[in-house]
């Protein structure tokens, strides 16, 4: 067990290594680790926030979905009502139109009938006159009885 200059040499080496470690080794490693710690903490917090945000968004989605469903139901109902109304309206219009057409047709028919009757009457009276002329020609003077015949035709 000799104590000698080795002691001093080791002391110097010790100081040098501690100084080196203090200057070039410890700060970068400890700094990087501290920085990583902060980053991880931030990451976890962000994840928490994101989870919360997701929940809120899900809630909003649900609300919007329900609203949309309600709106859709309303629209369908309104459309149904409108369709019914349109159908009713169409029915009304159609029946009115039919009435009108029917009435017009009836009026025309009546007109046609009156005209035909008049024509027929004229033809019958001419025929009757012709027949009567032939019967009477033999015995009745035309000039004498023309007034009578005129009044007859006018009556019919």
């Amino acid at each position: 067990m000799n104590i000698n200059l080795t002691l001093i040499g080791q002391l110097i080496a010790f100081v040098a290594f501690v100084a080196f470690c203090m200057r070039y080794v410890w700060p970068p490693i400890a700094g990087a680790m501290a920085e990583r710690q902060i980053q991880i903490a931030e990451g976890l917090a962000a994840a928490d926030r994101a989870g919360h945000d997701l929940e809120v968004a899900q809630q909003q989605v649900d609300e919007r979905l329900a609203e949309a469903k309600r709106e859709a139901a309303g629209i369908i109902e309104a459309a149904n009502k409108r369709a019914q109304a349109v159908v009713e309206e169409a029915k009304d219009t159609a029946s009115t139109e039919a009435e009108r057409v029917k009435a017009a047709a009836a009026a025309e028919i009546e007109q046609e009938r009156a005209r035909a009757q008049e024509q027929l009457l004229t033809q019958v009276s001419a025929l009757a006159l012709a027949g009567a002329e032939k019967i009477l020609a033999a015995e009745i003077d035309a000039d004498k009885h023309s007034d009578l015949l005129k009044t007859l035709s006018a009556d019919s």
């Binding site: 290594f17 080196f20 470690c21 070039y24 080794v25 700060p27 490693i29 990087a32 990583r36 980053q39």
Partner: peptide, 14 residues
């Protein structure tokens, strides 16, 4: 010791 730890210190990042 110094060499190994210095190498790591240089490479250390977050």
């Amino acid at each position: 010791f110094c060499w190994v730890f210095r190498r790591v210190a240089v490479r250390a990042s977050a």
